[in-house]
Amino acid sequence: MGNKIKCAVIGPGNIGSDLLVKLQRSKVLEPVWMVGIVPDSEGLKRAHELGLKTTAEGVDAMLPHVKEDGIQIAFDATSAYAHEENSRKLTALGVLMIDLTPAAIGPYCVPPVNLAAHVGKHEMNVNMVTCGGQATVPLVAAVSRVQDVAYGEIVATVSSRSVGPGTRKNIDEFTRTTASAVEKVGGAKKGKAIVIINPADPPLIMRDTIHCLTVDTPKVAEIEASVQAMIKEVQKYVPGYKLVNGPVIDGNRVTIWMEVEGLGDFLPKYAGNLDIMTSAAARTAEMFAEEMLSGKFVPAPTAA
């Protein structure tokens, strides 16, 4: 097993459980710990059955084992409030944090847009924005690489069943972090994000709408080509990322309607919001793992 980087997943909820399935398929990552805070958690039970070490006592209970178990990467799928402490404790031990909460302490990573920019930076904390951000920021970037975008607005609609208690308590962090990534990674001068939780049964597949207001008249053909190319990039790790309608051009408005169908790893296929988040996180971690395995990146403890 010398050719895999060992990792821990913190938070055995929807996102953590889905991520675990994906990590088990990875050629360069090996999940060894699952950390929770609720003793009778289903997610912890599942992880235990899969042969991971588990604790319901939070990150503190894992800290003494980090060295002996060789954990080099930790994924945080808890909440924005909990992440800061988790990150502080783990990076102090030299563990690289992949943050799946909207805490956004570290720089944003939206793989098809800026994964390459993180190579060689030796960052110890990288933030995965939000599921809505992963699903929409690539397309804001697809428009902004053609021409200046004065305003980018995204609407992410997710099924009620796919939204766990962490996200619900952190809904403001979700909208703020997504809006900020629309600007910083998507390249829009101003960003706005809206999230809708729809309780329909059977559950609706994740839908995402991207509105861009361009500074000058939209260059229709170039935008169409750029959008199609970006969709192909995302499909490399989320095959169910599909264009439903658009791009529709109306004056300076460019609108694109997407659907994100998941792989059905943990929750059924409607929960594409889980897949796009966990697939992006796994892809990001794999990039860092390859750097570590080749000796280009040796994570060092960060002073608290």
Partner: peptide
């Protein structure tokens, strides 16, 4: 389609489809 409050974005989408 069981659209709820706030899903105005789905109106043009539905019309296009």
């Amino acid at each position: 389609r069981k659209m709820i409050g706030g899903q105005e974005d789905m109106i043009e989408d539905t019309a296009l489809t």
